[in-house]
């Protein structure tokens, strides 16, 4: 089993790929700044269908999908040799990722409006990064 973070947040990518923070050790990153939040969720869902499990819940704690463009999903992914033996799909993860996709779609369609501008992007990247860092530290405990 290996660890993977799928993200569209460059701050997360930097922390994992370059900065060497200990809580992020031995974690792979799948970073693409052009992915939307929904793209990140869909990519995670596809991996869950192939046997990956969610480490963190895919939604943030307060900041809603129409209030930030960033999304990072933290997964445990079976290695190739484990997959060959056959892995089961984790139903908890399937339900959570599907609920999160439905909630994201809802809030992007049926709320007031997108509510951030470019000046806020560094702060939003930082908050997404800190949530993930809290999760990575929790996971290592």
């Amino acid at each position: 089993m290996k660890l993977l973070i799928i993200t569209n947040n460059s701050r997360v990518n930097e922390a994992i790929s370059y900065n060497g923070e200990s809580c992020f050790r031995n974690i792979d990153v799948d970073f693409d700044p052009d992915m939307s939040q929904m793209d990140v969720l869909v990519r995670a869902r596809d991996m869950i269908h192939l046997g990956a499990k969610l480490v963190m819940h895919p939604m943030m704690g307060r900041i809603k999908p129409h209030e930030t463009p960033y999304k990072s999903v933290f997964l445990e992914v079976p290695e190739e040799r484990e997959r060959e033996k056959g892995t089961e799909c984790d139903l908890n993860s399937v339900i959570m990722i599907e609920d999160s996709m439905a909630e994201t779609a809802k809030l992007l369609q049926n709320t007031f409006a997108l509510k951030y501008d470019d000046s806020m992007l560094p702060d939003l990247q930082y908050l997404d990064f800190l949530l993930l860092k809290a999760g990575a530290e929790e996971y290592r405990r």
Partner: peptide, 8 residues
């Protein structure tokens, strides 16, 4: 209310 599933 924590972030990872195993803590939850």
């Amino acid at each position: 209310l924590m972030t990872t599933l195993k803590e939850k």
